[in-house]
Each structure stands twice: as C-alpha cells, then as structure tokens.
C-alpha cells in the first residue's frame, strides 16, 4: 500500500512563494498527473516528495508513514528525470542496476531484475552500450527501466517525454501507461502537455501559480472545470466565454439570447461553452465568422459575438466564408457558468 498524502505543503525561494499550502491525496496505485504551465511549481512539488527539495512547511506521508524528514533513498521512491540523468560512464546494464548495486543486492538478483525490466522496456539488446551510443528515446527507456528495477512503492516522473519527438511521445505514452499499470506502483507524473495528461492520468491535478486548482478525473477536468483557469487551460482551443446578465430567476441573457442558468443573485456571470459543443441552428447566438481554418478532421472557425472572440469546431463539410453570419446553438447540458469575481464555477 502506497497512498501518498501531501499535507499543507508550502515552499518559498527567498521572497518568492513557489507553492502555497498544497493538499493532495493520491490513492495506492493511482496514476496522478500534475499539469500546469511552466513555472507553476510542478517540479518543485515533485522534488519535495522525492526529497530533493525541502518544503518550507507541511508534511508528506507515503503508505501511512511520514517521510519528509527522510533522505530520498529511504522514501521508497524512484524517479525519472526530465533530462534522463542516465550515467554516461556506466553501461545500460549498470545504469539500470545502479540502485540495486547501492542496496548491495546479490549479483544474480541484480541480473535477474535488470533483465526483466529491460525486457519490459524493450531494451534487452542495448544492455552493453554506453549512453553516448543511445538515441534520446532509448535513453528515456533506460531511465524508466532504472526506476522500475527498484520495484518502488512510488514512481515520480518529471516531464519524462518532453525531449522526444511527437510520434515517439505518443508511442511511449501508451507504453509507459501499460508498464506502470502492470507494475502496480503509485505514479506521479509531471507534464505541461494536456494531451499527455488526459490520455495517461487516472486523475489530473491542475496547478496554477503554486496552487492546485482542481484534482479530478480527466473527463471531469475537461467537462466540469472547477475554475475559469482550468477551462481556459485545458482543451485546444479552450472554452469560450461570454458575459451574462440576469433575466429573471435562473434565467440569464447572453448576447441577446436567454438561457437557463444557475439561481444566484450575482449581477453578472460568465457563460462558457467548449468549441465543439456548438452547432449551426435556426435559433441561437448570432456570430460573424472571421477566420476559417480547415484542419482535416474538422473546421475551426473563429468568430465574433459582440466584442468577444468565439471559436467553434464544425463538421469539415460545413461551408463557411469569412464575414458570413452564423447562428450557433449551444448543446444545453454542456453549458457552464463562472463567477467573474472568484473565477470559480457556479452550478
């Protein structure tokens, strides 16, 4: 059992507050992705869990044991580094076996484990090589194999795929997910790539400026963003927003149209909808097409409603010309509302 509990973790570098009061529980064998823009504190949080960085305050528990005072090697973790950190002076075999040698495991046990994980990562034929003779993707596999060989309770990964090309990244993504599920370890995976996060995670923690804004399943993060930041960070293109004024109880007026909405006494809300949840219809929001981008699978149209830009994804057969007027109906169950003051979602 390796449940991870992060309790009130904060970290400042001098006057700069990198993490504010982070609380997060990661279940045993869960695959948790930390997602956020560059500089939001993902690596810092991961390094605090690993013991490479000391938190200013707060506690880290793994498997019911407080571990934030232990050195990295005593925490039952293994880590995959962004630049791999595969030792150049050791062969692939010795790299994968490095941690096992440090634990002074007998030779045959080291060989057995190295060969097993090398098989899992498909690098059996590289065991005698040095890292200078490997491609980036192969080095990546060695880094993962080295972590798996430890048979850790928790595996921590800091943007492990970010140095690979797009195709290899997609391939490794699926493979890594499979291998980790099989190994039954709890995983924390840092990335700023939302596609990677959506496709791999059991749960995603969206981070923003040192806070976790939302921790939920990928589909929930996508469909029900807890805050405007999440809505505008996730999805490509992100959610559209339009200002809404009250028009009676639970009724809101958006760009001249009335929609059913939350029952609050706020003077203004933000209406939000994903680009793919809009359809051309007889009745709806009237928009002027500005830019039309055929993307093969679909048509991306950037239009204007009032003075706000608004993106819709239409079927690739749709015929739209710039300047043309469109009437777009939002799918009612996909409409979301945000409070512009708190930026949080309103139900």
């Amino acid at each position: 059992m390796a449940e991870i509990q992060i309790k009130n973790i904060a970290k400042s570098f001098g006057a700069f507050q990198a993490l504010n009061d982070i609380n997060l529980t990661i279940a045993d064998q869960e695959f948790m992705v930390l997602l956020g823009a560059s500089g939001c504190g993902k690596s810092t949080l991961l390094r605090i869990i690993a013991g490479l960085e000391v938190a200013s305050s707060g506690e880290v528990w793994i498997g019911g044991k407080r571990i934030d005072h232990l050195s990295p090697k005593d925490r039952g973790i293994a880590m995959v580094f962004q630049n791999y950190a595969v030792f150049p002076h050791l062969t692939v075999f010795e790299n994968i076996g490095f941690g096992l040698r440090m634990k002074k495991l007998p030779n045959d046990e080291v060989t057995r484990r190295v060969e097993r994980v090398a098989g899992l990562m498909h690098i059996e034929m590289l065991l005698k090589r040095y890292s200078g003779e490997l491609s980036g993707g192969q080095r990546q596999r060695v880094a993962v194999a080295r972590a798996l060989a430890m048979e850790p309770d928790v595996i921590l990964m800091d943007e492990p795929l970010s140095n690979l090309d797009a195709l290899l990244r997609m391939e490794m993504r699926a493979e890594l997910k499979g291998v980790l599920a099989e190994s039954k370890t709890t995983a924390i995976y840092v990335t700023h790539d939302q596609v990677e996060a959506m496709s791999m995670a059991d749960r995603i923690s969206v981070m923003h400026q040192g806070d976790i804004v939302q921790a939920a399943s990928p589909i929930e993060v996508y469909r029900d963003p807890a805050a405007k930041f999440v809505a505008s960070f996730i999805g490509n293109p992100p959610m559209n927003f339009l200002p809404a004024k009250p028009a009676g109880p639970s009724k809101w007026q958006v760009a001249g149209q009335t929609f059913d909405g939350p029952n609050t006494d706020k003077a203004v809300l933000q209406f939000a909808i994903r680009p793919e949840d809009m359809q051309p219809a007889e009745q709806g929001l009237v928009a002027t097409a500005k830019i039309v981008e055929p993307l093969g699978a679909h048509l991306l149209v950037t239009c204007q409603i009032g003075d706000a830009l608004f993106r819709v994804i239409l079927d690739s057969d749709a015929v739209v010309k710039p300047g043309q007027s469109l009437t777009l109906a939002p799918q009612p169950d996909r409409v979301r509302w945000f409070d512009p003051d708190t930026t949080l979602a309103v139900a």
């Binding site: 013991g51 090697k73 880590m79 430890m150």
Partner: peptide, 26 residues
C-alpha cells in the same frame, strides 16, 4: 550536471559512493 547527483541521491548512493561512482569516473 547536477542531475546525476540527484539521481544518485534517489537511487541510494551515499556521498562517498557519489564521489567514487560518479564524480571520479566523470
């Protein structure tokens, strides 16, 4: 690179082992 020492830390090398296994050969 300092990452080698971080990796060594995580994978259980003592400071002395880090010197003999990482610094010296590199």
């Amino acid at each position: 690179p300092k990452e080698y020492y971080e990796a060594a830390d995580v994978f259980g090398a003592s400071k002395w082992k880090q010197f003999t296994r990482i610094t010296f050969p590199l």
